Amino acid sequence: MLNELNQSEATNGITIRALHLIEEMEQVRTLESKIWGFEDSIPTHQTITAAKNGGLVLGAYFEGEMIGFQYSFPGFDGQTVYLCSHMLGIDQAFRNKGIGKLLKIAQREEALKLGYKLITWTYDPLETANGYLNIAKLGGVCRTYIENCYGEMDDLLNSGIPSDRFLVEWHISKNEDEKENLRQVELSEALEHSLIEWEENEDGLPIPNIKDSFEVSDLAFVAVPKDFRTIRESNIHIANEWRMKTRESFQNLFRNGWKVTGFYKNSETNLPVHFYILKK
C-alpha cells in the first residue's frame, strides 16, 4: 500500500517512506527544530532506537527534500499494546496541502504491517484543522480529556495557556461497517444544541459562554473557534476563556459516557466556530 501511495503522490511530487537510517533521523531533527525550535527536539538516538524496536518514523519528501515527518513508538497500558503517535510536523511552506493526511494513511498501513490494531495520539482540541483531520477525515474518536498535558510550554504554538489535549483512539483494524457512523447533521441543529454559545467583542473575536440549559438527544455539540491561533495572538484572556469553557464542557460530557465521534466544519463565513459532535 505504501508503494501504491507513492505512485499516486507522483502527480504532485510528494513521496512518503519509512525511515531507518541515522542520516534520515538527522533530517527529521533538522525539520523538527525548524518548526518548533532545537531545544526540545527529539535526539536522533531516540528516534532510531524506536524505529528499530517496534516504532515507526515516516518522512514526506518533495524533490528530495524532507518537508514532513511522523514519529511513533510502542505503547502499553497494562492491557493493550498500541502505537503511540507522538509527533507529526510539516514545513510551513507545505502546510494545508493534505500532507498530514497522507502521512497518517501511510502510518496506518505501516502500523498494520507491524501488527498494531490501535494508534493513539494527543492534540489540542482548539486547533480545529487537526480536529477536522483526526476526527472527520481519519475517523478517530475521543473520550479522554487531559488537563495541561505537557505543563507550561514556551513554544509559539502553546505559550500562555494550559496545554490541554484530547487523547485520540484510531482503531485501524476496523472494517467500514465497524466504524462510528453519524447521521446527517445540519448547521441549525449544531447551533441550537451546542453546549457553548458565544458573542463577538468590538474586535470581532468570539467570547465563549456555557449555556445555562440545553437539550440533548442522540447527539451533543460543542462549539470551538475556527481560528484559535488568531484569538491567542490577539487576546490571551479570550483564548484562556475558550480553553476553560470547552474543558468544562468536554469533561462533563466524557464523565457522563459521551465520546467525540464527529466534527462539523462550518463553511458560513459569518460564523466563527466549528463543532465537535459527540454521542453515547
Rank of each mutant, 00 (worst) to 15 (best):
P206S: 07
G131K: 00
Q27S: 14
A136D: 05
K137R: 14
I16Y: 08
T230N: 13
L102H: 07
R29M: 10
I238E: 00
G160E: 00
K179H: 08
I161F: 06
N158C: 09
V141W: 00
W198T: 06
A106N: 01
N270Y: 08
V28R: 01
N270C: 07
Q92T: 08
L126C: 11
I146L: 15
G13A: 04
L182H: 11
L205V: 15
I105S: 08
E248T: 10
D124H: 06
A129V: 10
G55H: 03
P43Q: 08
T44D: 06
T120E: 09
M1D: 10
N12F: 02
K137L: 11
K174W: 03
Y132T: 09
V168K: 02
K52V: 01
S163M: 07
I119H: 01
K179C: 14
L167W: 07
G59C: 07
N130F: 05
S249I: 00
L156W: 11
E200T: 15
S173T: 02
M244D: 14
R255G: 02
N181G: 10
A60L: 04
R232T: 12
N148K: 09
A60E: 05
S8C: 10
I207G: 02
N270V: 03
Y145P: 03
G257S: 11
R255F: 08
F73W: 09
T261Q: 07
S8L: 15
T80F: 02
V57R: 01
I196Y: 04
E200H: 12
E26F: 04
D91V: 04
V28C: 13
E178V: 00
N148H: 06
R17Q: 13
I207F: 00
L58P: 01
K259P: 04
E109G: 10
D155P: 07
C149N: 04
Y132F: 14
T120Y: 01
E189G: 11
N181H: 15
T128G: 03
F221V: 02
Y145G: 05
V185S: 08
I16K: 05
Q107V: 03
N266C: 15
D218R: 10
S33I: 06
G98A: 09
R95S: 09
S217R: 15
L126I: 12
S85M: 03
T261D: 04
Q184A: 14
L205C: 12
A223D: 01
R243S: 13
A106Q: 02
Y116C: 04
Y264F: 15
N53A: 09
L21E: 14
I42N: 06
W198L: 12
W170K: 09
E233K: 15
W258N: 12
I135R: 00
I236T: 11
Y123P: 02
G55E: 01
Q7K: 14
E192G: 03
I67G: 07
V260D: 02
W258Q: 12
G78I: 06
R229G: 04
P208Q: 06
I161S: 11
E268D: 15
T128Y: 00
L191P: 02
G262Y: 03
F166Q: 01
G262R: 01
A190D: 01
R243F: 12
L278N: 10
R143I: 04
F263T: 01
G78R: 02
Y264A: 07
L118R: 13
G140H: 02
I238W: 00
D40K: 15
G68S: 13
E4S: 14
N130P: 05
L5H: 08
E241G: 10
E4F: 13
